[in-house]
Design a protein around this nucleic acid. Structure first.
Lengths: 237, 237
DNA sequence: TAAAATCAGATTGTTGACAATATATGAAAA
DNA sequence: TTTTCATATATTGTCAACAATCTGATTTTA
């Protein structure tokens, strides 16, 4: 077994894997704007690789719905329309509801304690700096991610964390823009956690679904307002 | 607009798309057995293409979880383990429950009539030839697919029809193997349809979820029995 | 004999070039 | 001026060869 220390070699990622990860980040951060065209030669040069592995990465990104391809016409970054956001929130409600239900049964006492700890951190963060949206946003995802993990269902976890959450992060509109939203969200998180701690799966699912559909209602109005503003300022089309 | 008739050219599928479809069928039908290794050169020659487009197809199949890849170690057809089947049924319960809920609101009267017609066909099929499992199986998927479509949610439809249903079809174990199952399933389908016809979304979701978790219980025992049989016959490992 | 090292064959990862197609540009016609 | 057509350019689709890595069999060594 003298070679055991070289396992890092076989774990080495493939070029396609690397560029897949980097492109994903670039899309989510907005470096590659929504709707922009992916020109293979440009991207390939930019990352210093050939088009072969790049195309494989593109196919994978297509698979998780970050890119949209039309045969022979090119590939574009997905555009998050209003109705698409609604669809995503709907799927999320179903999946996370189930996730919470399972977590209520399967989450270990330690994980529950950690979850409660997380919420206390959020609490104090809100108390201190009201405006820090960023933490609120990522903290929210953190909460949801832990519950997805605790579902102990690989499929649920994958769908949520490697597909839905990415899209969610692409959507700049933070429900926390409403001043009272962070507090409200926190209290809902606490309710959900309590239901899980009580091993009440029915209630956990119900509360999670209500939490998400409530979040959608906020995002929905924010999106509508923005659309109206665009109509008013840019007008005429 | 003299070119409008040639749109068929631009719709022409790419080699990668074609082989993607064909490989998918081969996997589902079992021509490529579960756990078998995908050797790129062999498959490429078999389909008369080069490895480039094939690899793209492989990445896509990886994306919908029909293939599993280990960097530099090769790609294999997914193996449907017992626990994986359980995970799939759980996700399906969440997604199809939501689907039924939406369908209850959004399905047109015509679609509902067609759905009822479909069930009548199933009824008579069962009356005539009790054993025709095949039709029962595909008919079941047909029913569920129509409801997914009626949800009018592209994401739900995609996840169900292009991912979950494929895996489901890979699982040879038909719940209809239990003699009384087809009748039971049909009656549950009728109940669900009735709830949709009454525009009762709550009930439609509830019934759909119960229907699927019930189906899982049957499949579960079938799988367990088979495992026991294997243990008894092949023994010793 | 059993464990370790070595080597050859098989398989995957990557590249650059070529072919097929789409898009943009500008000239000709209405 | 606007539309239509033809051409050139840009971009995607495909291929075959090369390089890197893994796998399994054989040989060597203890």
């Amino acid at each position: 077994m003298t070679l055991s220390s070289i396992t890092s070699i076989s774990d080495r990622q493939t070029l396609s894997d690397q560029v897949f990860t980097e492109l994903k980040e670039a899309i989510i951060k907005g470096d590659l704007p929504q709707g922009s065209k992916i020109i293979e030669d440009d991207i390939a040069k930019q990352y210093g690789i050939s088009r072969g592995p790049l195309r494989e990465a593109i196919r994978r990104l297509e698979g998780i719905r970050l890119l949209v391809r039309k045969p022979r016409a090119g590939t574009r970054v997905v555009t998050l329309t209003h109705s698409m956001m609604e669809e995503i929130y709907t799927v999320r409600e179903a999946l996370e509801g189930m996730s919470a239900r399972l977590a209520a049964t399967r989450m270990s006492d330690i994980e529950i304690a950690e979850l409660q700890q997380l919420l206390e951190n959020h609490q104090s963060t809100i108390d201190q700096s009201k405006g820090k949206e960023y933490f609120q946003r990522e903290g929210d995802l953190d909460f949801h991610f832990r519950i997805a993990k605790a579902s102990n269902n690989q499929w649920l976890m994958d769908l949520l964390s490697s597909e839905l959450y990415q899209l969610l992060r692409m959507c700049r509109h933070r429900s926390s823009q409403t001043p009272e939203r962070p507090l409200r969200a926190l209290s809902e998180h606490q309710q959900i956690t309590e239901a899980i701690a009580n091993r009440d799966s029915e209630l956990a699912e119900l509360l999670m679904r209500r939490h998400i559909s409530g979040a959608w209602k906020i995002v929905n109005t924010l999106l509508s307002n923005e659309n109206n503003m665009i109509d008013n300022t840019e007008g005429k089309s």
